[in-house]
Structures are given as C-alpha cells and as structure tokens.
C-alpha cells in the first residue's frame, strides 16, 4: 500500500502531511465496513498482532482489538501490569518472549516515554505506539483529526484550542504536531505550572481559557493527570475548574458549531463541566467509531502492504 512508507507508527512528529492524509483517507474508506451487518473483512488474515498494555486503558485497547477483529488478524492482548512485569521482567524480556510467537505487530501502551522507540530498536515486529508516557499518542491524534475533518470538511485553517494538563499529556503533543502540520491554527491553554517549557515553539500559549476558546472551531480538553503529578501544580480542583475549566459560559465564546473533544476519561467538574461534556457539541460517539477506523487504517497500512523502509 502506498502513502505510508514506514514500518512503525511511533509518533506524529516524524510524519509528513501526505502520510497523515493517507491514514485519514484510508480510515475514511474503511469506516463503511463498520456499518455493515457483517463487520468482517479478510484483509489481515494470517497476520498476528499483540496488544501489549502496561497501563490500564479500556477504550484504546478495546478499539485496537475491534479493529484487529474486523480485519481478521489473529490478536492477543496482554495486560502486562497483571503478568510477568510484577515479577520484575523487563520490557525487553517480555517483548523478546512475545517475539517467539513471531507477531507481525506489537501495539504498545507504556508509562515510559520512548518505550515504543525502544521496542522498535530491539524487535523485528512493526511497532504501533498506543501511548508512551507524556510523549505521543498518535492514533488518538489521528482519530481526533478524522472526526474534525468529517464534521468541518477540512483541517486547514481551523482554529483549535487545546486546553488542560499540557505538561503530562501525550495527546496534546500528538495533536499539536498533527494539527500544525495540517495547517490548523492551534492555541494552547493551561495554568503556567502545567505548560512544558518550549512548547510555545509549536503553538502559542495562553493562560486565559476565555482567550483560547474565543472563536474556536474545536476545543480539545485534556484530562488532569493526577497519577503523573509530583506535588501540587494548582491549589485546588475548585480553583482549577473556576479558572481553567470548560464551562457553558465559556463555550459560548467559541463558534456556534464548536466541537468539544476529550480523549477521556473525564474529570467532570474539574477540567470540564458536566453540561458541556453531555452537551450538543460533544462528539464522543464519533470518536469511538473513528478510533476503530483509524486503527484499522494503521494496521492495514503497516501490515497489508509489501512492507517499506524504516520509520
């Protein structure tokens, strides 16, 4: 298959715009399969995919599993937290053991940034990064982009605010890369303690959410990642919600047809008010379907073709 000449998907940073378009177009074409009564095609029959998840993740893992089933790949999911890792086995040993099964692909979710690069260096299989620490979560950015493109008809020129815990967010990094590569106008917003240094080289940063949301075509809300925090980054959830949370009143500053995206799971009443989360601008259901379609596209582009060069 053409348009995506890599063996791995480790991040958005290293992709060309044309490669992003190739994934989105492929996903668009595959979406139709998901509406069929019999949701199964033999595209990846005989291919083996291992989903290796070191962090609990219901939606990403389920999404990959469905994509693999629809494409008829043989797949195996391992929640590594519950297996040998607790006995002290290293990531490399685990991966090497899995390799004995000759998988064509390993989908990896890990709390350490660079874990997917590490596997790519030491394993023969294609590696798909399903989230590595605070680094990247490329399939999430691709599915967000697919959702935006479907609803808005384009990515170029869209004004997109990315709001919340930028410091710990891999979703933010992948989305900033993707949207800016595709010509969207991105603005970032967080309290100063949650802005990683130098991120303003990729997109402007504001500490005022009203400013960020003003005239936005879409708002991407980021979850406050308490589990990754050392010490307090803000005084209280109450103050966070009041000063930096997405409320009904703030949504009104955006365009009328604004879309609200959240990678989930949400902290209601902290980064997002319940009325907003459940409101008419929410595209969460689209995101679920698009998530499967995008992951099918990635599987197909990496495994279905005649192979390619290095990532």
């Amino acid at each position: 298959m053409s348009g995506y000449p890599h063996r791995h998907l480790l991040g958005i940073e290293s992709l060309e715009p044309s490669e992003i378009v190739a994934v989105l177009d492929t996903a668009e074409g595959l979406r139709e399969i998901l509406d069929r009564p019999l949701k199964k095609v033999p595209a990846l029959r005989g291919k083996t995919v291992v989903n290796l998840f070191y962090e609990p993740s219901t939606r990403t893992r389920a999404s990959f599993e469905v994509a693999e089933k629809v494409l008829s790949a043989d797949s195996l999911s391992i929640a590594a937290a519950a297996s040998s890792v607790q006995k002290g086995e290293t990531l490399l040993d685990t991966a090497k053991n899995l390799e004995a099964m000759n998988p064509d692909m390993i989908v990896l979710r890990h709390s350490a940034a660079g874990a997917a690069h590490f596997l790519a260096r030491h394993c023969r299989a294609s590696i798909v990064n399903a989230g590595d620490g605070a680094h990247e979560h490329p399939t999430q950015a691709l599915l967000d982009a697919l959702t935006l493109r479907q609803r808005k008809g384009r990515l170029k020129g869209l004004r997109v605010a990315i709001v919340g815990d930028l410091l710990h967010s891999r979703v933010a990094r992948s989305n900033v890369w993707l949207l800016s590569k595709m010509g969207a106008e991105v603005v970032l917003c967080a309290p100063p303690t949650l802005v990683p240094p130098g991120i303003d080289a990729l997109a402007p940063v504001t500490h005022r959410i009203d400013e960020a949301v003003e005239g936005a075509d879409a708002v991407m809300m980021l979850r406050i990642q308490r589990e990754r925090m050392t010490g307090a980054f803000y005084p209280s959830d109450r103050e966070y919600h009041v000063r930096f949370g997405l409320t009904e009143a703030r949504v009104k500053r955006a365009k009328k047809d604004v879309l609200i995206l959240h990678p989930g799971p949400m902290n209601r009443g902290v980064e997002i008010a319940s009325e907003v989360a459940d409101g008419p601008y929410s595209v969460i259901l689209d995101q679920v379907t698009n998530g499967v379609a995008v992951r099918m596209a990635v599987l197909l582009l990496l495994l279905g073709g005649g192979g390619g060069g290095e990532s």
Binding site: E13, A113, G114, G133, A134, R170, I199, A201
Partner: peptide
C-alpha cells in the same frame, strides 16, 4: 535536561 527537547520527548527534565 529540562527544556524544549525534553518537552518534545515527553521526558521529565
């Protein structure tokens, strides 16, 4: 080191 490179890599600096 903390800085733009660590930010892009998602590593604590």
């Amino acid at each position: 080191n903390e800085g733009p490179v660590a930010t892009l890599l998602g590593l604590r600096g």
